[in-house]
Amino acid sequence: MFKRKKMMRIGARLDGETRYSGREIPETHDEKLKQYESALLLQRRGAARAARAPEISDTQFDAFMQGIREGVAEPAPRFAGLWTVASVATVTLIVIISLLAFFTGGPDPVRATEVESASTELQGVTVNYYDNPQGVSTVKVNMPENDLW
């Protein structure tokens, strides 16, 4: 726990925290704490180098501007041709489908139940057929009341 506190004080001292300004922090003789301090310093140097913004020197400036000029002068890739081809293909497809639908005449009509034929072999009996008001196909046998059984 004391070591942890010392490590925090080392970090704060290296960060230049105000509460430690003017205070003398005794140098450590502990080997592990020394290693910790060295590692912290190394990290700080690395962070300072990474944070440094890249600069273009005068000797690099002409080449830098030349690259920009080339980028501006180069025409942007054009996709207008692709859109034209896609539009024409779509229109052609629609026209073909419409023509096929028009000339093939659509699906076969649905046909209702019907009586194709009806006949009898009995003397005195007649047969006719009709659709009743509900559309039910009906075969009607007209039989005399007697002489059948």
């Binding site: 139940t113 009586v115 196909s137 046998v141 039989m143």
Partner: peptide, 21 residues
């Protein structure tokens, strides 16, 4: 043979034969 009839029955269609005394 009282009646012989040929029916064309659509799917779900119905027909009837009446008058068989």
């Amino acid at each position: 043979k009282v009646v012989e009839t040929t029916l064309l029955l659509a799917p779900g269609g119905k027909a009837r034969v009446c008058g068989l005394r």
